[in-house]
Design a protein around this nucleic acid. Structure first.
Lengths: 185, 185
DNA sequence: CTTGCCTATGCAACGAGTTGCATAGCAAGA
DNA sequence: TCTTGCTATGCAACTCGTTGCATAGGCAAG
């Protein structure tokens, strides 16, 4: 289980509330780990109970109060322990691949539309990543070199970019194969 | 939920028992969908109850009897229905990416070993895929062209190959970044 | 002949993840 | 003013996935 650890990393990068975490899980962290606000609130409660994180009530004006969490010493120790033990290669779940193999037993027209839709979604995500890379990891004037944390965030983002590019090329291959098997005039 | 549909596709490609399915989920299907035998037996029971699949007791010599499942008409209809409705882009879970960002708050030496271990695992899987591609999808004499089902299995396998190549290149990038941040003499 | 391994199926308990719903303050616009 | 939408937190019920264990027949090696 790594949701706890993903939260610890995110809180170390910057303390925040459950709501803010759920926003981060829709963008940067969410590129490689998804979680809903339900999961996050539940896990935060458990982590607070276990002493991994500290809470601080933050009154706000113009919006509801929030609880800001930050990592406590036991949480940092737990993260360090997890970082030192091996994780197995991730288990894969690709609905689309199941569908492609299923297309042998069905009319592939609907699948072509579906693959095109996915291709578009991945192209959008790639564009989004590239904007973020340009914004956060380009050194405009040559001053202020990136620190280690930023370098590591950048290499993870480069992984996302490589993944999207690979996926788009593969989906083009899939489309070409489907059209070859099911030519339209 | 798509385990049911992955099982339907696999049983359409070839009927088989729960045990045989669990073997397939360790190889071909398992490249893009993982499942343990527990899940498979449970889902098979439900699918049989719902009339999606038929069972046939097959006595065997030298080994325990098995129940061979095959897809019934309602199962085929359910698969077809699922193939025609859109699926959302898959949710991602990359422990290793969490660890890489976490390395900013810890000694990265252990992470380097971990990344090298993952690189080796992906290289092994790539080699395995390439052997399978050579074995199953190379037309040796020019006769017997591949049918649609094989073409689709091949394009899914090409996706796996592209994924492993991309991942290996990215892990090299990660290793270079880690060594740059933490030079060893 | 005992020990370990492979085929083959399954239960029970738990933990992780999803979905629907509820509440509550404040802001902006119809 | 009423609705819509955003911030902010949470409960309850359910499904999915994992882990540990159990059974049972046959095979091969020591």
């Amino acid at each position: 289980m790594a949701l706890e650890h993903a939260i610890l990393v995110s809180l170390l990068e910057k303390p925040g509330s459950g709501y803010e975490l759920s926003r981060r899980f829709e963008r940067s962290i969410g590129y490689f780990w998804t979680a809903t606000h339900q999961q996050i609130y539940r896990v935060l409660k458990r982590m607070e109970h276990d002493g991994w994180i500290d809470v601080r009530d933050v009154p706000q004006q113009g919006r509801p109060d929030k609880k800001e969490y930050s990592v406590a010493a036991p949480g940092r120790a737990a993260l360090s322990e997890w970082l030192h033990e091996p994780v197995e290669p991730e288990s894969v779940r690709h609905d689309l691949a199941v569908k492609i193999r299923g297309a042998a037993f069905d009319d592939p027209t609907a699948l072509i539309r579906e693959v095109e839709r996915h291709r578009q979604a991945h192209a959008d995500r790639l564009a989004h990543y590239l904007v973020g890379e340009q914004r956060d990891f380009t050194d405009p004037g040559g001053d202020a070199p990136l620190d280690a944390g930023q370098e590591l965030q950048h290499v993870v983002l480069r992984g996302g970019i490589a993944y999207e590019r690979m996926t788009i090329a593969w989906l083009d291959d899939v489309l070409a194969t489907l059209h070859r098997l099911h030519p339209v005039p």
